[in-house]
Simulated scan of single mutants.
Amino acid sequence: MFEITWSSFTRIVTVGFLAYIGLVFFLRISGKRTLTKLNAFDLVVTVALGSTLATILLNDKISLLEGLTAFGLLIGGQYIMTFLAVRSKTFNKFIKSEPKLLYLNGNFLEDAMKKERINKVEILQSIRNQGKGSLEEVQAVVLETDGSMSVIQGEPGNTLANVKSDKKI
């Protein structure tokens, strides 16, 4: 359980260092967009990259080249998906959800909350996380495409332009 052989230690250090360098190289050539978490798909890619790195490090049946190929496949797939999403509204709608208005001007939007499976306590928590002590300080709360909640102070303006709502904004 607490044993490690010299050869396994050497493999972990060597392959780990090279896999890390390979991952950094792939991330640099693929651009900043690869590690953003703008939606659920991006989060899955980020987690998969970490899982792949761990597998390369700890599974001696996986070669460095196989691991680097997996990195390339994940990053290449994400690049293709985002490339298509930027160029096709239909494809973009297929892979991404829309932000959803949950609270507006003192009113919790119950239908939207039920549809998104969000309760009032979670909205209040996100408001507190933004350092707000009162609902009077908040004009709107939006459930973003990445699952986070944006808390808006002041009059909601054009930042709500693409937010899906059953209420007139």
Rank of each mutant, 00 (worst) to 15 (best):
V15A: 03
G16V: 02
G16Q: 01
F17R: 02
F17K: 03
L18V: 13
L18M: 08
L18C: 09
L18D: 06
L18F: 14
Y20G: 14
I21E: 00
I21N: 06
I21T: 14
I21H: 08
G22W: 03
G22P: 10
G22T: 02
G22D: 00
V24G: 06
V24D: 00
V24W: 02
V24N: 03
F25W: 06
L27K: 10
L27M: 10
L27V: 08
R28G: 07
R28S: 06
I29R: 06
I29A: 04
I29D: 01
I29Y: 10
S30R: 07
S30E: 03
S30Y: 11
G31V: 08
K32A: 11
R33T: 14
T34Q: 01
T34D: 00
T34S: 07
L35R: 11
L35N: 12
K37E: 14
K37T: 15
K37G: 14
K37M: 14
K37F: 13
N39A: 08
N39W: 12
N39G: 12
N39Q: 10
A40F: 15
F41E: 09
F41W: 07
F41Y: 14
D42C: 06
D42F: 05
D42H: 07
L43C: 09
L43F: 15
V44H: 04
V44I: 15
T46V: 12
T46Q: 00
A48D: 07
A48S: 15
L49R: 10
L49E: 08
G50V: 04
G50Y: 00
S51T: 13
S51K: 01
T52F: 00
T52A: 06
L53C: 05
A54R: 05
A54I: 07
A54T: 13
T55W: 00
I56A: 06
I56H: 08
L57P: 10
L57F: 12
L58P: 07
N59S: 09
N59K: 07
K61M: 10
K61G: 15
I62F: 04
I62A: 05
S63C: 03
S63Q: 03
L64W: 08
E66F: 04
G67H: 06
G67M: 03
G67L: 01
G67C: 04
L68P: 13
T69Q: 04
